[in-house]
């Protein structure tokens, strides 16, 4: 993981990244009229996100290449999502 993050930085693709505490520490906030809080992660979510990277790369193929390396480094499936343009 360290090695991957260093490689991302060297390539100028690194923006931000972090691991997350286990999903059991999550709190769900729902705002529909009033705001309510419940303990625990979404019950519906089968797979929990364990961490994330934000990278800045020119295109899909470059992103996929990094996502593949990230998947190998964390030994977990990695979902790739484009960010909305501001």
């Amino acid at each position: 993981m360290e090695a991957l993050n260093e490689e991302l930085e060297r390539a100028g693709a690194w923006v931000f990244g972090a691991g997350l505490e286990p999903a059991s520490s999550a709190t769900v906030i729902r705002a529909s009229g009033s705001v309510s809080m419940t303990d625990g992660p979404y019950a519906e979510t089968k797979e929990q996100m364990g961490g994330f990277w934000i990278i800045d790369v020119p295109d899909l193929d470059t992103a996929l290449d990094w996502a593949g390396k990230a998947g190998a480094a964390c030994e977990q499936p990695v979902e790739l999502r484009p960010m909305q343009r501001a």
Binding site: P58, D59, L60, D61, A63, L80, P82
Partner: peptide
């Protein structure tokens, strides 16, 4: 999906 992900229209590199 291709547009939002900025998929580029190119011939893949020899490795891919």
């Amino acid at each position: 999906k291709l547009r939002h992900n900025h998929a580029s229209c190119r011939i893949p590199s020899p490795a891919e």
